[in-house]
Design a protein around this nucleic acid. Sequence first.
DNA 1: GTTAGCACTCAAACCGTCCGAGTGCTAACT
DNA 2: AGTTAGCACTCGGACGGTTTGAGTGCTAAC
Lengths: 352, 352
Amino acid sequence: MDLSERKLKILQAIIYDFIRTAEPVGSRTLSKNYDLGISPATIRNEMSDLEDMGFLTHPHTSSGRVPSEKAYRLYVDTLMDKKELTPVEKDSIAQSLYKNVTELENLVERAAHILSEITNLTAFAMTPRQDQDILKYVNLMPVDERTVILMIVSESGKVSNTSIRLNKPVSMDTLAFISKNMTYNYKGKTISEALTLDIIETVKTDAQALAMYEKSIVPSFVKTLEDMLNVNLYMDGYTNIFSLPEYNDIDKAKMFFEMINRKDDFTQKLINRDNGMIITIGNENNDESLQDCSVITATYHVNGKQVGKIGVIGPTRMKYAEVTSVVEYLTDNLSQAFKLTEGEDEDKDDQY
Amino acid sequence: MDLSERKLKILQAIIYDFIRTAEPVGSRTLSKNYDLGISPATIRNEMSDLEDMGFLTHPHTSSGRVPSEKAYRLYVDTLMDKKELTPVEKDSIAQSLYKNVTELENLVERAAHILSEITNLTAFAMTPRQDQDILKYVNLMPVDERTVILMIVSESGKVSNTSIRLNKPVSMDTLAFISKNMTYNYKGKTISEALTLDIIETVKTDAQALAMYEKSIVPSFVKTLEDMLNVNLYMDGYTNIFSLPEYNDIDKAKMFFEMINRKDDFTQKLINRDNGMIITIGNENNDESLQDCSVITATYHVNGKQVGKIGVIGPTRMKYAEVTSVVEYLTDNLSQAFKLTEGEDEDKDDQY
DNA sequence: GTTAGCACTCAAACCGTCCGAGTGCTAACT
DNA sequence: AGTTAGCACTCGGACGGTTTGAGTGCTAAC
C-alpha cells in the first residue's frame, strides 16, 4: 500500500488535531474541521488503511484514531512545516534571555526557564563540558600556617579554588616552590591534558615539597579540575506536566517526577545523545520511564568541540514545530553569547 | 465542659489512628482496637462532646471523626509522648550523614536527604547565614593585564572569588596598593561589618586606584560578600507526597509543587520562623498553600547567633513524635559538626 | 453513668440504561 | 473504480437507582 497524497493529508490532520486536543480523532470531526473535500466514509476507509500501515491506533472499537509513534516520526521528518518565529517573538525571547545576565552560567539557567515558559513543558539546559578550556593561572596561596588555597583560573574566565588544610605547617619557600612548578607546567594546558599530566618529577628534589604535594595538593587539584569539568543541568517548568491530560493519572505523574529527580542519570542520558537537533519519540528513548514522552535536544557551541545542550521533555503529543523553532533560536543565541566571551568582550553596556 | 482524663485518652486514640490510616475514625474501631474499657456508645457520647469543644470534626453525618487543627495542637503540646531514637537508629543516621562528607555544605544537603528518607515527607535544610563569619584574607590578583581576581577567605573556611574584567589595563603597583589597603582594613571584620565599612578614604591618594576601586572593585566586592551571606536551601523527597492519600487529587499535588517551587519565598518564610523546634499546623502557617500542611523546623547552631534550619513539610496528619525526634537528632549532629570546624579540626580520618 | 438496641444517614460500590461518538460494511451513485 | 449515504454495531461515559456498610444519635434499660 502506498502513502498517497490524500493519506498524508489525512494523517497530518489527525496528528494536528490530536496534538491540540489530546482526544482520539474521528472521521466526522476531520471532514468537518479540515478542508479535505471528502466525506467521512472515505476518510474512514483511508484511516483504516493508515491503521494497517501502522500510522494510527485505535484505543477501542468505537473510538477515533490516535497517531502512533511511527506517525510522529513521519510527521517530524517530512510532514511538519517548520514554524519560523516572528521578529516580535524573537525579540521578546532575546530580551528576557539577556536581562540582568552577569554570568554565562546564568544565561544557561535562563534559557531553560524561557524554554519552559514558552512551550509549557519541562525544559532543561546543560552547561558545556569545558574540557578544552585552557588553564591560565594556577597558584597556591598561604592563608595561615596550616591553610593553603589552591586557585585555578581558566581562559574562559572560570575561577575555581579549594582551601587545603595541612596537618603540618609548611614553609613559604616550599609552597612557592610547588606553586611555581605547577604554574610553569600547567599553564596553557587544557583541563583534559592537565588531568593526565604528571609533574611529580619536577618537585622531587625537595623532600618536604614532595610529601606535601603528593598528599595534599594533588588530590585537591584533581578534584578541582574534575569539578570544573562537571556539567550543570538546569531544569525548569516541571509543574507544567500537571496541566497535561496524559498526566491526570497520579501514578504517571509520580513516575515522571521520579525520573526527573534522578538528575545524574538524566544528565548522562543527555550527554550521550548526538549533537544537533535531535528528536526522540516514545520508545526511541529506550527508557521505560520515557515511554510516552518525546525528548527534543539541540546543541549550542562554545568552540569547535565543546557543546552544551538544551531541550524539552514532554508527551509524544507535543507541538514539535513550535518547540523546535524556539529551541533552535535559543541555541543560536547561546552559541553567540558564548562566542563573545571567548574573544574580547564587546561591551554590551558600560560595566566592564 | 472539661477535658476529662477519658476524653483525652479517646482524643489521643483518634489522633493516633487517623495519623496512621488517614480515614475518619468511628466509635467501633476505637473500642475494638484501643484498650479504652468502654463501649462504642459511651465513646460516641464523648466524641460528641469533643466535637462540641472543637477537637473533632465530622466530614458528614454518618462518618467517623477527624481531628481538628486544635486537636493536633493539643496533641503536639501535651498529649504526644516523645519518641526517643534507639541507638541503632541513631547510628544508622550518623553513618549516612557523615559518609564521604568533604564539605559542610554537603552535610546540610545530606541532612535533608536523610530526613526525607526517614520521614517519607518533603524535607529541607538551610545553610546558616554566616553574617558573623570573619574575613581572614582579602586579596586582588592580576591574571592578565585586564583581568583581576578578587578573593575572599573567611575564618570558617569559605573561599569566594570573582574574576573582574577591567576596561583599561592597570598597573601592578596600583593593584598592590588597593589590595594592601583592602586587606588591612577588612581583615578581622565580620561580613556584616565589611558591608557597612567604607574605606574609600584610604585609596583616595591615588587617582587611578580610586577610579578603579570605585568602578570595578567595590561592586564586585559587595556582590561577593552578599553571595557569601546567601543561604542555600536544599530540598529533598518531594515525590513522597504522591504516596499520601491527601494528595491523590491532582490539583492539590500541583498546588504543593508550585509552592515548593517558589524557593525564594519559601526560604524567606523559613528564615522568619522562630528558632528552636517549631511546629506550625495548618492555618497557623498563615499561608493559603499550606492550609492542610504542618511544618516542623528546628535550628542548628554555628556559634552564638548564626543558625541554620532543617525541617519537614507534610500533611497535618503526620507522625509528629517520630519526625520531631529525627529532626532533633539531626540538628544536634549538625551543630556538633559545625562546632568542630570552628576550632581546629580533630581529624576524622587521616586525610592530610 | 453506662450500655444495648434501633432507627437513621450517607458515601461508595454496584448495576443497568441510555446516549453519542465512533466504526465497518454494504449497496447505491457518479 | 472510487466515493458516499445509510445502517447496524460497539463501547466508554454519564446518569440514576439500589444496596451495603460504617457510622451516628437517641432512648430506654441496666
